[in-house]
């Protein structure tokens, strides 16, 4: 996808998202969904960049999300650091953890990377619940229940005022999305394409797979951590329940629906997945069942996710739009 097209798509998407509060500003339930769509779209985008674009089999995305959330919560609750700074610090901490995890595991083979990164996920539960976690202020099994709202320019942003929080998230989302787009289309992006085509040839040109993978890993971890932190201050409470397989599968489904490595397909995937999940919620246990079936069918029959057939359908239209502008 060309840069122009990508930006145009995202622009269109976020313009529409941006005006949603005009219609739903008064309905908490829908605002909540919209905010979660924004947060998850970015987290899933990061995962898509890691998996589909950089070709790293990382299963640690939820772990990084939770690390960011807990880092910011602990910093702001136990150390009284204002949330604005603690969120940024949480991003940096998560980025560092990303590098720490990336250093050993980016040299491993596919499923091993998946396992090692997932091992980080699995260690988090006993760590946060255990004495070590309690020592740093994770609140053990009950979690942290009193995370302060974000205070900025004399305003408090939290789940009590959804519209301001929506725009704060919106603002951050756009910045992070731009960073991701620029990365994909920068020299890094070209390097990855070269690596994907032929790792040996790319290496002969002096492109170090390891270096670039590590950089992508660090950057996406940073963004993921940032949004994890944002989430923490949004809901105002955290528990290790965040690490259940539910969040993991939901994010995975977003990628499958959007198409892996078909950025920005995953953003659309996030919208569809969250909506679908909410619509199916009254069905109880049939909800995950249907979601699972959808994944199987999509992987089998729509291997690039839902986005490519839509592009094909809309391509005549699109050409007109692109040419006009």
């Amino acid at each position: 996808m060309s840069l122009k097209r990508m930006i145009l798509t995202l622009c269109g998407f976020y313009c529409v998202m941006g005006i949603m509060p005009l219609f739903f500003g008064g309905t908490d339930y829908i605002m909540n969904i919209l905010i979660m769509i924004l947060i998850w779209a970015v987290v899933a985008s990061c995962w898509d960049v890691i998996m589909g674009f950089a070709g790293i089999f990382s299963f640690g995305q939820v772990a990084f999300y939770v690390i960011g959330a807990y880092a910011s919560a602990i910093l702001s609750v136990s150390m009284d650091i204002p949330p604005v700074f603690s969120i940024i610090m949480a991003g940096v901490i998560t980025g560092l953890v990303g590098v720490l995890v990336g250093l050993p595991c980016l040299r491993l083979a596919g499923p091993y990377v998946a396992l090692v990164t997932f091992a980080v996920h699995m260690t988090l539960v006993p760590f946060l619940r255990g004495p070590l976690g309690r020592a740093i202020g994770s609140g053990g099994s009950q979690g942290i229940l009193t995370i302060p709202p974000i205070k900025l320019f004399g305003l408090a942003f939290s789940s009590d005022q959804l519209v301001p929080f929506f725009y704060l998230t919106f603002f951050l989302t756009i910045i992070c999305t731009l960073v991701l787009v620029l990365m994909i289309k920068s020299y890094w992006g070209t390097a990855f394409l070269a690596l994907k085509d032929s790792e040996n040839f790319a290496a002969s040109l002096g492109i170090s797979a390891f270096k670039y993978k590590l950089m992508v890993f660090a950057l996406t971890s940073f963004i993921t951590g940032l949004f994890g932190a944002l989430y923490a201050h949004y809901v105002g409470m955290l528990s290790t329940k965040m690490l259940s397989m539910d969040v993991f599968t939901i994010l995975m489904i977003m990628m499958v629906i959007g198409g892996i490595g078909k950025y920005p397909g995953v953003v659309v995937g996030a919208v569809i997945t969250v909506t679908l999940s909410q619509l199916l919620a009254p069905l109880g246990m049939y909800r995950p069942l249907i979601m699972g079936a959808i994944v199987v069918v999509l992987v089998l029959f729509l291997r690039d996710g839902i986005i490519s057939p839509i592009i094909r359908l809309l391509s005549p239209l699109q050409r007109v739009v692109v040419e006009e502008e």
Binding site: M255, M285, A293, V295, V299
Partner: peptide, 29 residues
């Protein structure tokens, strides 16, 4: 059917993950 793609290992992982979701909640249902 997935074997013909380059990134089939990843696709198999995704597919079986979906399948496990389907089966697990199928049992519950």
């Amino acid at each position: 059917p997935l074997r013909k793609y380059d990134d089939w290992e990843m696709k198999v992982m995704m597919l079986t993950l979906g399948l496990s979701l389907f089966m697990d909640f199928g049992y519950q249902a």
